[in-house]
């Protein structure tokens, strides 16, 4: 916990209301029972996590597998309720509930999943896929224009709208998933390992695109990854999760130069480097 307190000092305090804020998030999962009659143990996935994302800020959350990243994402996306703690979007509290009640929130906060290409329904056209959140969220206006704008923002040709995912290249499919998240014009993008498992060439393109969206569109980005190299390209501030706790929360360049916590040091050292 000390690391958190010392780390917090380095962050410039803002008077702006954060677009997305978590306070004291705690979440446990039931462990499978050894025997049917044995008492069910619980695994603590998150243990008192605080986090604030300022408008237009790019924040990285890194940690190795099992550090609580996925649990944190589910809570921030209101897919799961915390055992303790709160999530706020602007001034409004967010908790899981019926799709209709959460429409305002989903319009604000959109999501780019891990391996985005696999999240495209193979039966649907690109146009229908990108329009799906507009339809589901009841966004008024001409959806076709919104789809075209979204495709343009990820630098995809509007003619692609009639294709199906099977006819796209890997890089194009990634962009379609990104366009789908951008279509309702959100102010926050949560990205879960958006480039892991991609060829290096495609990875570089997607990273460049995300950087541009933040720079030119003022989109706030929360990037969750196990790969510090990707986070360091995109995020000015990085938060390190270890065993469900925030162990560092500092500007990324400082973190890379002088990691304090052992978990942070392991993450920094794990990035493979080509010999010069």
């Amino acid at each position: 916990m000390n690391a958190v307190l010392t780390a917090r000092e380095a962050v410039p305090s803002t008077t702006v209301t954060p677009v997305l804020q978590a306070r004291g998030l705690r979440r446990t999962h039931p462990l499978p029972r050894r025997r049917p009659w044995a008492p069910a143990g619980r695994l603590t996935a998150l243990d008192g996590v605080d986090l604030a994302l300022a408008p237009g800020e790019q924040l990285g959350v890194v940690g190795s597998s099992g550090s609580g990243k996925s649990t944190l994402l589910r809570l921030l996306l209101a897919l799961d309720a915390p055992d303790a703690g709160t999530v706020h979007c602007g001034d409004r509290a967010v908790s899981p509930g019926p799709a209709r009640r959460l429409r305002w929130f989903r319009r604000q906060v959109q999501y780019v999943p891990q391996d985005p290409a696999s999240t495209l329904d193979p039966r649907m056209t690109v146009g229908a896929l990108v329009a799906e959140p507009l339809r589901a969220l009841g966004v008024p206006g001409d959806h076709r224009t919104a789809v075209a704008t979204a495709l343009e923002r990820v630098r995809l040709d509007a003619g692609l709208a009639s294709r199906r995912p099977g006819e796209l290249s890997g890089g194009q499919a990634q962009r379609v998933a990104l366009a789908r998240a951008l279509a309702p014009a959100p102010t926050v993008l949560l990205a879960d390992e958006p480039v892991s498992g991609l060829d290096l060439a495609v990875r570089a393109q997607v990273v460049e695109l995300l950087a541009e969206l933040g720079r030119d569109r003022g989109l706030a980005l929360l990037l969750v990854s196990h790969d510090l190299s990707v986070v360091s390209r995109l995020c000015s501030r990085t938060l390190v999760l270890d065993a469900g706790r925030v162990v560092e929360d500092r500007p990324t360049d400082q973190l890379l130069a002088t990691p304090r916590h052992p978990a942070a040091r392991a993450l920094v050292e794990a990035v493979p480097h080509l010999p010069a």
């Binding site: 060439a201 990875r203 390209r233 493979p272 080509l274 010999p275």
Partner: peptide
């Protein structure tokens, strides 16, 4: 040998891969 190839990739394909790796890391 690794060091030679990474320092001076002869094929366009390897050059692309090396450049991409340097761009991300």
């Amino acid at each position: 040998p690794t060091a030679e190839l990474v320092a001076a990739p002869a094929s366009a394909h390897l050059r692309e891969l090396v450049d991409a790796a340097r761009a991300v890391a």
